[in-house]
Amino acid sequence: MIRHLVLFKLNEGVRRDDERVVAGVKAFQELDGIVPEIEFWECAWNITDRPIAYDFAINSAVADADALKRYIEHPAHQAAAGQWREFATWVIADYPF
């Protein structure tokens, strides 16, 4: 299994209630039912307020490197990530477990 972690930081001046952000969150929430490679999926807003904290997180898992590649290339994932490019930056970690 491969854990796929993504931490998002909203761009300066962008708020959680921005309609683009709301739509972006919805797009990620729906991936679990759309992308067959997903073995485990959770995403949520960070509840802590610290200067080094990121705002939103995805914690997911796929079976192997091939499944991760298919997940990343899936049109629904590409569309969801594309929405976030408008208002956030992110960091990713993929590791076996």
Rank of each mutant, 00 (worst) to 15 (best):
W90K: 04
S60C: 11
H74W: 07
E37V: 04
W90G: 01
L10M: 05
V6N: 09
F56N: 00
V6H: 07
V35S: 08
A80L: 02
E12A: 14
Y71E: 03
Y54R: 13
D17P: 03
E12H: 09
Y71I: 02
Q29W: 05
I2A: 05
A65Y: 09
I38A: 06
L10F: 05
L68Q: 06
R20H: 04
V25T: 08
K26Q: 15
C43W: 05
D64W: 03
V14F: 00
E42G: 14
E42N: 13
N11G: 01
R15Y: 09
Y95T: 12
I34P: 08
R85Y: 07
I92L: 11
E30L: 10
I72N: 13
I34W: 08
F40G: 08
V62C: 01
R3N: 15
A53D: 15
V25L: 06
P36C: 07
W41M: 03
A88R: 00
I38E: 07
A65K: 10
D66L: 05
D64F: 04
L5A: 12
Q83T: 09
D66V: 08
F97L: 13
V91G: 12
H77R: 01
N59I: 15
V6S: 07
A61W: 00
E19N: 04
K69F: 04
W90N: 08
A63S: 11
C43N: 14
H74P: 11
D18M: 06
A27K: 05
F8H: 02
R70D: 03
I72M: 12
R16V: 01
K26A: 15
V25N: 05
G13T: 08
G13E: 07
Y95I: 09
A61N: 02
Q83Y: 01
H77D: 02
V35E: 08
R16N: 00
F97Y: 12
N59L: 15
E86S: 07
N46L: 07
I47R: 10
H4W: 06
E37T: 06
H74M: 08
W90F: 14
F28K: 02
A63K: 14
R70T: 04
H4K: 11
V14Q: 00
Y71H: 05
A27I: 07
A65F: 06
A53E: 08
V35P: 11
I47Q: 10
Y95A: 12
K9F: 03
A23T: 06
E30R: 09
A53Y: 06
A57I: 12
R50M: 11
R85V: 02
D64L: 05
T48F: 13
F56C: 01
P51W: 14
A57E: 06
I58R: 04
E42H: 13
A57K: 02
A81D: 07
A44C: 14
K26C: 07
A80Q: 03
R3F: 10
L68P: 01
F40M: 11
I2E: 08
M1G: 14
I2M: 12
I52H: 13
H74G: 05
A57F: 12
A67T: 00
A65S: 09
E39K: 13
E19G: 02
D32T: 09
